[in-house]
Design a binder for these strands. Sequence first.
DNA 1: CTGTTAGCGCTTTCAC
DNA 2: GTGAAAGCGCTAACAG
Lengths: 327, 327
Amino acid sequence: MTDVARRAGVSPATVSRILNGTAKVADDKRQAVLAAISELNFAPNQMAQSLKHGRTMTIGIVVQDIASPFFDEILHGVDDGLKGTGYASVIVSGHWNADEEAERIRLLLARKVDGIILLTGRMTDDTVLRFAEQRPIVSLGRVLQTERAVGYKLDNEHGAWLAVRHLIELGHRRIAHLSGPVENRDSVERLAGYQRALKEADIAFDPALVVEGTLHESGGLLAMNRLYDSGQPFTAVFAVNDQTAYGARLFLYRKGIRVPDDVSLVGFDDLPGSSYTTPPLTTVRQPLYVIGQTAVQSMLRLINGEPADGAIPPVELVVRETTRRSA
Amino acid sequence: MTDVARRAGVSPATVSRILNGTAKVADDKRQAVLAAISELNFAPNQMAQSLKHGRTMTIGIVVQDIASPFFDEILHGVDDGLKGTGYASVIVSGHWNADEEAERIRLLLARKVDGIILLTGRMTDDTVLRFAEQRPIVSLGRVLQTERAVGYKLDNEHGAWLAVRHLIELGHRRIAHLSGPVENRDSVERLAGYQRALKEADIAFDPALVVEGTLHESGGLLAMNRLYDSGQPFTAVFAVNDQTAYGARLFLYRKGIRVPDDVSLVGFDDLPGSSYTTPPLTTVRQPLYVIGQTAVQSMLRLINGEPADGAIPPVELVVRETTRRSA
DNA sequence: CTGTTAGCGCTTTCAC
DNA sequence: GTGAAAGCGCTAACAG
């Protein structure tokens, strides 16, 4: 910048003023500076600007798994939300581990990100709130509402209830559930929704019909395998998420059990791939992309000291082709 | 840091020395400083360090689509490769558009990233080389080998050849190809591999059997639809990538055409989801994860002024359950 | 309107 | 071994 100033015969301050439109500058000097800038191919050092201003124009995103279609779709929304704002994002992964998550957040804090978007995870709300003292935090998967932290929560219980009620309306009574790990909040909430739907239909809850998976395809396959081996009769399966459903689907295929002719299958998430499975998966849609966008908007408000609410569209049932009336 | 120094009764310089192990410090002072650090919950401002050192410990990653399983898997490798190196990544998307790509790179450059990893894209090699004058660049999908830039290239032609030869060995003669956009290098190389395999087997190339898709599921479905409507007989389909194959698979399902009983299907990429399609997809495996890791390692070498080669494992055919002997 | 000056938080000679 | 001082590239307050 000093070079530019010298070349244009002005002071660095003037160059700065022109760059930022901070004050009026005589036209001839402006031209000279602009010329010098392009000749020198100059671009301001954002790092120095950040040091000065105390803001890095960077926001940190904590996902749990960087190669998951679930987080991907949210990141897509985040990316689009950030577009044109001048902010960039640095993405780190907590790998579903509270300690690692905290570690990564400290990393982001050391980098002086202007805010942190936390996509689910295993940390306690207290820990999150403590971090929020340093930087504003927007978090998915928890209910938070302070000056420095807001949280969004999907209605997992309701979503699961929608899915199971759909199955019940189709005449199914023996409805199995491939659940997620008990440590996972979303999973237990979905289990609760499953149970409520059964109860409302006066169907007795049978623990033998609930098998725990891992939220991944492989876990879904294994869980389905165990359910099958248990010999329990069932005509429908509600999987805790789409990936679990994919795994279950494969097991069923291997056994020659047709979907939906022999058993109906419902997932949860509506991942992008779910409209292209064979057959396309009936599932509960989470507005992943919108969640990402909304999180960014809230973050921007928080950064500017404005209040942020946290309204996202509700979950909804998407009926495709893996469910049908019970024989 | 000044606070820490004051509290410990030493100079800021000493604190710095302890933090970085730059020089020997008396043990009592060291204890005092360490104590002060933890009492004040102090962490050095990376921004200031960067300003001083001229390196940000950040590397920029340019993908083309942030919600694609293909880039995701590479990013996964990148993320793991970065682990423990002190570097963080900022990911931006070029959306398969040369101008946008250049724009994003300029953004990264303004942020003073220490290097840029370019995952495919539409920019010319010349443009890349010009950017490489400013920061080291590792690029996927092009052949580059200079002091400041290295490139990796998958053997698309060979991969496609493997896929089609497999089909031919199974007795197929009428093998259709769902291709990608002609602007896409990878796609035309795969088309070339398809043609070479046919030629080697003395099967005449029939342009009517090649239909262009978009590299996405929807394009695969449409392309398959057009092929079907054309009335051309075929017993096997080689799709330019897995996503195209997924789309094709769905169309076939809708028409009641069985895979692999009625038609065989091969993809390209071996996305994580491809082992869980119904049935699991035969495809050409690209070592996506390893590519990501390798790119990081090369970047780190480049940054340190060391030479970097660019060796990645070869593509290989993964035979699963969508191909079978022609009737 | 514009130049001078100070300082963001850290590291690194250079003396002592 | 340790402190004082200068400086990374920029911006903002203060004079003029």
